[in-house]
Amino acid sequence: MTGHIAALGRATLDTLSSIGRAGLFLVQSIFCLPPREGFHLWLRQMHFVGVMSVAIVLVSGLFIGMVLALQGFTILVSFGADEALGQMVALSLVRELAPVVAALLFAGRAGSALTAEIGLMKATEQLTSMEMIGVDPLRRIVAPRLWAGFVSLPILTVLFGVVGIWGGYLVGVDWLGVYKGSYWSNMQDSVNFVDDVLNGVVKSLVFGLVVTWIAVFQGYDLIPTSEGISRATTRTVVYASLAVLGLDFVLTALMFGDLG
């Protein structure tokens, strides 16, 4: 019995110290001077983290927009409110689905890749040799990746939203026969740029920071064996996904909680 309690205590202390390490890690990585050719390093990471996630984001956005229109139409038509399809698709995407789903996809694709890459660098002692040569790996390896993730996810979110709305248009207007004018004009009337679009972008900025932070930290902190790498990669996807969903609730409550 006491053995279990002690184990629980140890686990709590371990978790707390790991969160503390993660926090210090973030602060040290963000507030450090960029290394020479820092812009180039960032650019490279923008490619690996952002550009290479575009395909999955576009395809998913398209399908989600199309399904939203399909499902939404069947429900709205029973209220005679099918003209509201445009605003339904746009609001769902812009406020919730684009930031959240893009972040989840990002965590799975880019997040796990980041963890694995940094973990492999740790396991093959590249990070150690970098330190021995006198270069701080936080500056050269971690910081560019953090900034790339922070900038990429909002862009991916916007692309997701745009493609989703277009997908909704394809299904709603071209296929199901909603009047083209009302799809767009109802949408324009009800979607507010600052309250809806910008709030969605703010969400994606927060998600970008949190997901990339988790991914990079898990890679940096892991036990440098192949088992350690695979466990850390799984942890990145799980923790990042849960964090996104949890933060989404908090942000939504803050942003949209007192509307209407």
């Binding site: 492999l120 660098m121 093959t124 002692e125 590249q126 150690t128 040799s129 970098m130």
Partner: peptide
């Protein structure tokens, strides 16, 4: 280092 540790 044992593995060379070249920057990949």
């Amino acid at each position: 280092f044992q593995s060379g540790a070249l920057f990949s």
